[in-house]
Simulated assay, not measured.
Amino acid sequence: MTTFTPGQIPAMNNRTVVITGANSGIGRAAARALAAKGARVVLAVRDPAKGQAAATTMTGKVLVRRLDLADLASVRTFAEGFQDPIDVLINNAGLMVPPLGRTADGFELQFGTNHLGHFALTNLLLPRIRGRVVTVSSNGHRAGTIDFDDLNWERKPYRAFRAYAQSKLANLLFTAELQRRLTEAASPVLAVAAHPGLAATNLIGHLDGEPLRRRLVHTVAVNFLAQSEQDGALPTLYAAVADIPGGSYAGPGGLLQGRGAPKLVGRSKAARDAATARRLWLASEELTGVRFPLPVTPSRSR
């Protein structure tokens, strides 16, 4: 496929899609497009009032459920209360460069929300997922490293962008290891990832603590280079419905993957490190208390 538009999304009747953080930005745009194609779309959002406001702008069957990814109790409550089959789970919600904060469970806010919250949610819902899991990463993953000695920024000086980059790298490592485990369990579910390029959304939090050069670059990029949230949602939609293999990574096909029609794109060497992906998975299980729920067939076990 050389181009992809919302018009190429197949009919989604009788399919259920859960999208985290779907009350704004690319999550809202993706939800709107999928609902218009007949999907039953569940907006999993921290603020149900904002979710209801977003739902009123969409056609089709759109439901709103509360989910706070920065609180594992909320993640468990959501998963326990959702017993219907899920055709597509889109792990879209995320924070970008806020001041240092902690989740309800004490994790650094970006790592805890962007990675650990989605890690727990996916594994808790996995027995009911029958299609694919799409996790939204970022080009920022290329600047990321996984610091296993200080995943939650409790020892070193906090750097918001580096914490963000770590969380986005974690998204890709999570996708890779999830797909490996799904394959080993002989599951038909696919794990894929996407990134929006440079999209003009309200994801950006606070840049006050970042270096002046980074703030200036961001301002110029958003004002002159960023694509709309509708275009930014296209890689997510492509990853959700296109005929692509498990482990794929979709992003804009234009200059520096910043904008343009979605296609399968590359990722950093760090994001392809299988040993790091497995180690991160085990660390995430330890931190969240949530484990991979599917049985492994004897013929595929290690």
Rank of each mutant, 00 (worst) to 15 (best):
A200K: 15
L237F: 06
E184T: 14
R32E: 11
A104W: 03
V265I: 13
I9N: 04
Q257H: 11
T183I: 10
H141C: 02
V75W: 12
R142S: 02
A93F: 08
D149L: 05
E154F: 02
A35D: 00
T77M: 13
T113F: 04
G197A: 14
G253Y: 15
E108Y: 03
T20H: 14
A176R: 05
T2G: 01
S248P: 15
A160Q: 05
Q230W: 00
K61P: 00
G60W: 06
F224W: 09
R214S: 13
R40P: 00
K37P: 01
D150H: 06
L67D: 12
R267V: 10
L34P: 01
Q52G: 01
N14Q: 11
L207M: 15
L69R: 11
L216G: 04
H115N: 09
A54S: 00
V18P: 00
Y164Q: 06
S24L: 05
T201H: 14
T5W: 03
E154S: 12
R102T: 12
I90R: 08
L237C: 03
V41N: 00
L125I: 12
G197I: 15
G247I: 14
W153S: 08
V18C: 05
S228W: 02
G197K: 15
G266S: 11
N171D: 05
L116Y: 02
T57Y: 01
P6Q: 08
P252A: 13
F4M: 07
I204F: 15
L72A: 08
A274T: 08
P298N: 09
T3I: 09
P157I: 03
P211Q: 09
E285H: 05
R291L: 05
T16D: 04
R214N: 07
F107Q: 09
K61T: 10
L121E: 12
L225S: 06
A44W: 03
R162M: 09
T5G: 08
D243R: 14
G81I: 02
L182S: 09
T77A: 14
T2I: 09
D243C: 06
E210T: 09
T59L: 13
V296R: 07
R272A: 07
D84G: 01
G27R: 10
I9A: 12
G246V: 12
V265S: 09
A239E: 10
